[in-house]
C-alpha cells in the first residue's frame, strides 16, 4: 500500500473547525431557533457551519463567535417573512392568551403581555435594527462584536440600537417595567 501524503497532516485547519463546531453549534442553533423556529434552525444551523467552513476561518477575521453569528444572521434574513410571522404570532398569542397554528413552540409558551408587546415591536423594526437588537439580546454580543458580525461600523451599531430601544420602550408603554431605569 502506497504511503499517503495525508490530506490531513498539515497544520490542520479542519481539526480546528471541528472544535469550532463542537463549541458553538448549540448556541447558533438556539439563536436561529429563537428567531425562526426549531425546525428551521435544525437545517439552518448546519448551513451556518458549512458556509463558515467553506468561507474559511483565519485569525484576521477576529473572534469566532461574531463571525458565526454574522453568518447565521445573514441566513436568517432569507426567512424574513417567517420571522415576521413569528413575532406577529407571538404578539397575538399574548393578546388572545392562547394558540397559534403557526408554530407549536409558541403554544408551549404562555406569553406574557410583556413578551407580546416586545414581539410586536420587533415585527415593526426594520431588518437592520432587528439584527442588531437580537444579536445583542439573543447572542449576547457586545457592540464591537455586533459590528464585526454584521461588518458595519460600531457607530452604526450604536445608532441602530438606540433607535430600536426607543421603539421597544414605546411598545412597552404602560406596562414598562423599565420605567424606573429610563424615566
Amino acid at each position: 500500500m502506497a504511503p499517503r501524503p495525508d490530506l490531513v497532516d498539515p497544520p490542520d485547519l479542519r481539526d480546528g473547525f471541528e472544535q469550532i463546531f463542537n463549541a458553538h453549534f448549540a448556541e447558533i442553533h438556539r439563536y436561529i431557533a429563537r428567531r425562526l423556529s426549531d425546525d428551521i434552525a435544525d437545517d439552518l444551523a448546519a448551513e451556518v457551519f458549512l458556509a463558515a467552513y467553506r468561507g474559511g476561518y483565519d485569525a484576521s477575521r477576529g473572534q469566532v463567535r461574531p463571525w458565526l453569528y454574522g453568518i447565521a444572521t445573514h441566513l436568517v434574513a432569507r426567512h424574513r417573512r417567517t420571522e415576521l410571522r413569528r413575532w406577529k404570532a407571538l404578539s397575538r398569542t399574548a393578546e388572545r392568551h392562547e394558540h397559534s397554528h403557526e408554530d407549536a413552540a409558541l403554544t408551549r409558551v404562555a406569553a406574557s403581555e410583556l413578551t407580546g408587546r416586545l414581539a410586536g415591536a420587533l415585527a415593526g423594526l426594520n431588518g437592520g435594527d432587528r439584527d442588531v437588537v437580537l444579536l445583542s439580546a439573543l447572542g449576547g454580543l457586545s457592540h464591537a462584536e455586533v459590528a464585526a458580525a454584521l461588518k458595519i461600523p460600531a457607530g452604526t451599531v450604536a445608532s441602530r440600537l438606540n433607535r430600536a430601544r426607543k421603539q421597544l420602550r414605546k411598545a412597552l408603554g404602560d406596562v414598562n417595567p423599565l420605567e424606573e431605569n429610563h424615566g
Partner: peptide
C-alpha cells in the same frame, strides 16, 4: 435591566438541538 436584557429574558427560548440534528 434594559430593553435588550428584557428581550433576552422574555422571548421564548428554544429547545436544544437533538442529537440527530447535531
Amino acid at each position: 435591566m434594559d430593553e435588550i436584557n428584557l428581550l433576552a429574558s422574555s422571548l421564548p427560548d428554544a429547545r436544544p438541538p437533538s442529537d440527530e440534528v447535531v
